[in-house]
Amino acid sequence: MKNIPTLKTDRIVLREITGSDLEHIFNGLSHPEVIRYYGIRYDSLEATQEQMRWFAEDKQCWWAICSPDKETFYGAGGLNDLNMNEKKAEIGLWLLPEFWGQGIMTEALPLITNYGFQQLQLNRIEGFVETENHNCKKAMAKLDFKKERTLKDAEFKDGKLISLEVYVKTNINI
């Protein structure tokens, strides 16, 4: 079993996702506003078990984003598709809508990227953002992720092709 350390600031705690988070994960990944720009969605707790199995895979490193007392679940974030040979990963994050606009994303993303660079010794962290997700693009730029390219008509979503912008942050200490 992999060891997911607890990360924290004064306002948030990132802790390992556990089986008791199933309902929280379902609430997020079934919420129309959360999944609007997110590539995964579930329509039942049973279906959400697939996401829980995915979180447990060795190549994923995800956290529950919570209040400092760990009582309030804000969302989830982490590193996908860890590739230790190429020293890179993809970053992902989502928040429940009632916590949008409170600076949680801009506090959680640096914790995740710093962990990737300092503890996992990654050289490159990529973020794939739907072209219509303006809030996420603003947050990525604010956190020094640079837009590298646009993948035109890269995925099918809701029966139509969507484009993705690739944002990248590299470990400048290497």
Rank of each mutant, 00 (worst) to 15 (best):
I25L: 09
W54H: 11
N173K: 14
K147V: 10
I174F: 12
N171T: 01
R36L: 11
T48D: 09
P110H: 07
K146A: 05
Y167H: 02
Q60G: 06
L22I: 13
K137Q: 15
E132V: 09
E148C: 13
D58R: 13
K157L: 14
A141W: 06
I174Q: 12
T18H: 00
L122Y: 13
E33K: 10
H134R: 10
N3D: 12
F145E: 00
E126W: 05
L29I: 14
K157I: 08
G101F: 08
E98T: 04
G78W: 03
R11A: 13
N85P: 02
P68I: 13
E126V: 09
T150M: 05
R53P: 01
L29N: 08
E165A: 15
D43E: 12
Y74A: 03
F73R: 12
I174R: 07
Y37T: 03
E46N: 08
V168S: 12
R41Q: 09
C61P: 01
I12K: 01
A56K: 13
L164P: 04
F156W: 13
K2I: 02
L95G: 01
G127H: 02
N83F: 09
E98I: 05
R53I: 08
K70L: 14
K169I: 02
S67T: 09
D144G: 00
Q49F: 01
A47N: 09
N85W: 06
T150H: 07
G28E: 03
V168I: 13
Y74W: 06
P68T: 14
A141G: 09
I65H: 08
L14Q: 09
Q60S: 06
I25M: 11
T150L: 03
F99T: 00
N123E: 13
N80M: 08
R11W: 00
K157H: 13
T6K: 15
I12T: 04
K142H: 11
V13E: 09
I12C: 05
A139V: 12
V166I: 13
G75Y: 05
L164V: 06
D58A: 14
G103H: 05
Y42S: 01
L96F: 10
H24S: 12
F117C: 05
K59D: 15
G19K: 12
Y38G: 07
N123D: 10
F156A: 03
F128I: 11
I104T: 03
K59C: 14
P110Y: 06
T106N: 11
K169P: 02
K147G: 05
N3Y: 14
E33F: 10
M52W: 04
